[in-house]
Design a protein around this nucleic acid. Structure first.
Length: 300
DNA sequence: CTCATTTGACCAGC
DNA sequence: GCTGGTCAAATGAG
């Protein structure tokens, strides 16, 4: 695809991304039943997922295309820093509600009843263990307690394979919240997915919402962003990307389990009309790292 | 027919 | 001998 056309499609998709986020906010604020809100949430998540997947594909294509000097849509390819996993120590223990959707493909090779546990332990190895000599393995064991069901996942050995795209899987750039635990976060967000095609309004605060699937309550933690904690980058086309948010201490206003699978990271902003709106990034947590007390998930 | 899962057998470490 | 991890034949789904 021609580079300028790719850029045009990217801008349209970014617009769709932003509009979906806006729609999501409107639904949350609107006078709808819980069922209607849940349905809307599901649809908007699907939309954001689709936008994100399309954007990822387009951007990866664009970076491979030589940008012609003087092109109408000349844009420096946005650098999307490839985050290396700091959790390189193995085995790595994770408690998650979604043990089977971690972005990799696994093949089960055994199951064992473990002493003192109600549920058996399942043993998986990477689907590409033979094809690509990938040594990655994991053990999955449902916890005896926990509603909804929680699973202890022990990862052994790092993936060395290059997995094929899995239908329905989200992009795997990780959104990490180092130091999470006791409902207090010291965040360092690689918010590379948050973009806005319009001139950015000033950012006033940053909030995290845990979408509690148990009682459908939205619990919010809000903390003002202090000087120097956020880096909004504008380019000469007026688009903006938030690349990093460092050292914003967050404390949750209400006690809630940190293990629920959905989290929204929302930047509350005021635009020129001083009407609040949000630039959002939703994340499905698929794990809670017991070793590092670290939440991680995938933005979409 | 192919491939993934299931499940009992086997093995190593303690 | 017990326990946890892996193997491999049987089974099932598509």
């Amino acid at each position: 695809m021609e580079n300028s056309l790719v850029d045009s499609v990217i801008r349209e998709m970014e617009q769709a991304f932003e509009l979906t986020t806006k729609l999501q906010s409107l639904v949350e604020l609107g006078n709808y039943s819980d069922t209607q809100k849940e349905s809307a949430r599901m649809v908007s998540r699907e939309l954001l997922q689709t936008c994100n997947a399309t954007l990822s594909m387009l951007k990866s294509r664009r970076t491979n295309v030589k940008i012609e000097y003087g092109s109408q849509y000349q844009l420096a390819p946005r650098e999307i820093p490839i985050r290396t996993d700091r959790r390189t120590h193995y085995p790595r223990k994770v408690v998650t509600a979604t043990p089977y959707s971690d972005g990799h493909q696994w093949r089960k090779y055994g199951e064992k009843k473990i002493n003192g546990c109600i549920f058996p332990r399942s043993y998986y190895r990477c689907t590409y263990s033979e094809d690509q000599r990938c040594e990655a393995k994991k053990q999955v064991q449902q916890q005896d307690r926990g509603v909804p069901s929680l699973f202890l996942v022990i990862y052994k050995e790092e993936h060395t394979c290059k997995p094929m795209a899995v239908e329905g899987c989200r992009s795997f750039e990780q959104l990490q919240l180092p130091g999470c635990g006791e409902y207090t976060c010291n965040t360092s967000f690689p918010l590379t997915q948050v973009t806005a095609s319009t001139t950015p309004p000033p950012v006033d605060s940053f909030s995290l919402r845990f979408d509690d699937s148990e009682d459908s309550l939205m619990r919010t933690a809000v903390r003002s962003i202090t000087e120097g904690t956020i880096a909004w980058r504008r380019n000469d086309k007026g688009s903006v990307s938030c690349s990093e948010l460092a050292s914003a201490d967050l404390e949750f206003l209400e006690s809630t389990e940190p293990l629920h699978p959905s989290l929204s990271a929302v930047h509350d902003v005021d635009d020129e009309d001083h009407s609040p709106r949000s630039l959002g990034l939703d994340t499905d947590f698929f794990g809670f790292d017991l070793d590092d007390m670290e939440l991680f998930g995938t933005p979409y």
